[in-house]
Design a protein around this nucleic acid. Sequence first.
RNA 1: GUGGGAGUAGCUCAGCUGGUGGUAGCACCUGGUUGUGGCCCAGGAGGUCGUGGGUUCAAGUCCCAUCUCUCACCCCA
Length: 421
Amino acid sequence: MKLKALNGFKDILPAEAIGWQQIEYLSRDIFQRFGYKEIRLPIMEETELFARSIGQATDIVEKEMYTFPDKGITLRPEATASLLRAFIEHNMHVQQPVTRLYTFGPMFRHERPQKGRLRQFHQLDAEIIGADEPLVDAEMMAMGQLLLTELGLEASLEINSLGCPSCRPAFREKLVAYLQKFEVQFCSDCRRRTQTNPLRVLDCKNPRCRELVQNAPSILHSLCPDCKDHFELVQDAMNNLEVAYSVNRFMVRGLDYYTRTTFEFIAGNLGAQSAVGAGGRYDGLIKDLGGPELSGIGFAMGIERLVLLMQEKKNSEQCQPAATDIYVAALGDDATRYASVLVHSLRKNGIKAAMDYSGRSLKAQMKLAGRLNSRFALILGDQELENEEAILRNMKKQDQQNISLQGGPADLVKILEISNI
RNA sequence: GUGGGAGUAGCUCAGCUGGUGGUAGCACCUGGUUGUGGCCCAGGAGGUCGUGGGUUCAAGUCCCAUCUCUCACCCCA
């Protein structure tokens, strides 16, 4: 039997890993600029944590989690719940009034895989805990947009407010009343959603449902005064920061804990998926999980989706392997042994050196040097070994000179430094 | 959970209405240069045509089953 990766689980091969490294490097840099600290979290938690935070009735909890029932534990389907659990467990709120944290890592959901959607997927996640000012919401969205921009990606930002426990139930009732009035005209999925999750009807893809929903009551007209003010101030702040956005009153969230500001970064070329990142405010969640009464806001970006967008964007930029400083081509057993010591010395001195141990022809070794994008080749045969010298070839300029090895590796390091390595 | 599409060399794929598996491209190895890379030329290696049945004188090709991948629905980053 041929062994292979599980469906929905992917190997990230070296060529693709370069893009991942760019994303990780750049996002760390941006998070650091905004005052975030990294937190690293376990990938398993008690099942109850996710049931309580994401929502017992959501699809994620109901049918998509990888759970070990006998142990009561689950592979995390998202990052926020774990992060807040750790925040509460370690009383992190006593150290400072506002905490900014970020984390990276794999998430697991048992869905059918398709473009931009895997069973093990990776997110980078940022959260601000302990502040509910509209300026905080704006800062966070502006940071997300900056991250995408610096990655060379274009995404539009859509925002909405989902209200709070004091105004959302009333909206929900109004919406359900409207949906029931036109029930026969909605698709079968939406008729089901009217019962299970009426807000979901608002972002149905069916054209007929989209039309019907245009005249549905708007959440933005049902917000309580506090939520209304908050959302208006968020928009003011976004305008002041000059971050483009559009209000989309049909945007909903798949996780129950969201309140007030929610947002999505929308990009094309993700297959049926459109969001490369999404997030929102969750003001009651920390208390619900047994923590202090603190508000919070956060977002996650799908790393695979970022990679997809980056591949679309610059497919011309081939992933060249990083250049090698020097390739040592040895001919014969004695020279190979000598070269192995030399190469190790070079590496200890910070030089990226490569060689082959299998006694290939000089031609084959030069070919390898070329493929590794080597700046220099050092040719070392028995003749050279006898005289304690070697041929140093500049691969780009195609010229070469004899150099002495009597000074040992230190001399060679100096020569390479002079040669601008 | 539901539907569509696809499985031929390491990768990307030809292979028409059944008639010997492709000088195909990329990659790999060797040689052209007894010790000098990229370009070029010549040669070479590499495949149970996803698997199992069936129809047929003959199946990569047609039929059935099955596995896998993929796209989409659902849902979501």
